[in-house]
Simulated scan of single mutants.
Amino acid sequence: MAISLRRRPAPRGRYTPNLWPVWLVAPLVLVLALLVSWGIYQYAYDYFAQAAAEQKPAKQVNVNEVLKATVTALTLTGAVLAGLYAYRKQLLSEGDAHRADASQLADRYTTAAEQLGHEQAAVRLAGVYALARLADDWEEQRQVCIDVLCAYLRMPYDPDPAAPEHRAGEREVRWTIISVIREHLRAPDSPTSWCTYSLDFTGATFDGGDFSHSHFRGTVSFVGATFSSGTVSFVGATFSGNVVNFDHATFSGATVDFVAVTFSGMIGFFGATFGGGSVSFDQATFSGDWVSFRRATFSGGTVSFWAARFGGGLVSFEQATLSGATVDFGEATFSGGTEFVWGPLPRPTVA
């Protein structure tokens, strides 16, 4: 019966080295040791026999010399095998250490997640900071920790303190999450940077928050997000991922500052609603393949593109609706073969 020498596949999530079973390795090593010993003895015997035959007159083979050479070679071989055994033990020790680290990190994750679900705002705040520290320490699961923080912002939230579903201190918790995310987006070269990770704020409600001078280099989604009140700042931020998605977002009373923001890639405000408050794209740079405000609704408030720079690609306001909002393109510049599809908005002067 044939015996497969393939090593057992290591289960996913295990840190133990993928080793052959001992019951198979032990007899194979014994047989191999005997074969090696016999081979070394035969080689040494032949060597000494040839040397003895070449002498004048020919001499008998000195078996003691053969045995000494064999023992010396086996000793060296044993030293090599001892080194391999020590290496194997080191692998096992490292596996144990990795398992201990993973267990500790998993316990920290569980504790932080439980804190985020606590009724008291102070405990939830502690959970935010604990999860952020865990993300810094646990690179393999950093995206998971980020996803949990983003998911918290996506949960139903009524900023009105008089609302039945409003929880005391909830605004401070949410602003803290935004602050923690921002601090991890300001230093792209930091080993604990979150700049290249995915950030999903789909359907989230923002009643304030500061993302200023952040670097968004991964997938960023504000699809269906609501900017209802307060000030949300993206001043000086850089969106350099493939897609910047604010499709169907609602700007209904907040002051949202995209001042001096740099957009590259594909920028989408498809179907967005500008129904109040102030949204400023002043001095922003749009350098992506396309910028889409297609089917956007401008029904109130102020939207300013003062001194914004559009460089290349397609700028589309096709089927946009203008009914009561003030839209300003004063001193905006367009260059680099920019193409335009204008809806009812006032067409700016193209440089």
Rank of each mutant, 00 (worst) to 15 (best):
W23A: 11
Y45L: 11
E331S: 15
T349D: 14
S323N: 14
V25I: 13
I181L: 14
E172S: 12
V223L: 07
V350M: 02
P164N: 07
E114D: 13
F293D: 01
I267C: 09
V31R: 03
R7T: 12
S221Q: 10
R108H: 06
T262N: 11
D257L: 14
E65P: 06
N242L: 09
T110A: 12
V303G: 00
A58H: 07
L199W: 07
V243G: 02
G300W: 03
P159T: 11
T273L: 09
L105T: 03
V128F: 02
Q50Y: 12
S278G: 01
I181T: 08
A79G: 11
V261M: 00
E331N: 15
T349I: 15
A249T: 10
E339C: 04
V66H: 01
Y41S: 02
A44P: 05
Q42P: 02
V235Y: 14
R12W: 13
S292T: 12
L24A: 15
G288S: 10
T196M: 09
R14H: 14
T262P: 09
A122C: 01
S212P: 00
D328T: 15
Q143E: 07
W342H: 00
A168D: 12
L322F: 03
W138Y: 09
R167W: 03
V244I: 10
E114P: 04
S37Q: 06
E114S: 13
S190C: 05
E339D: 02
V71S: 00
R8G: 07
G300A: 11
L67E: 06
T250F: 04
F305P: 00
L84N: 03
W38K: 09
S221A: 13
F270H: 10
F216A: 03
R171D: 12
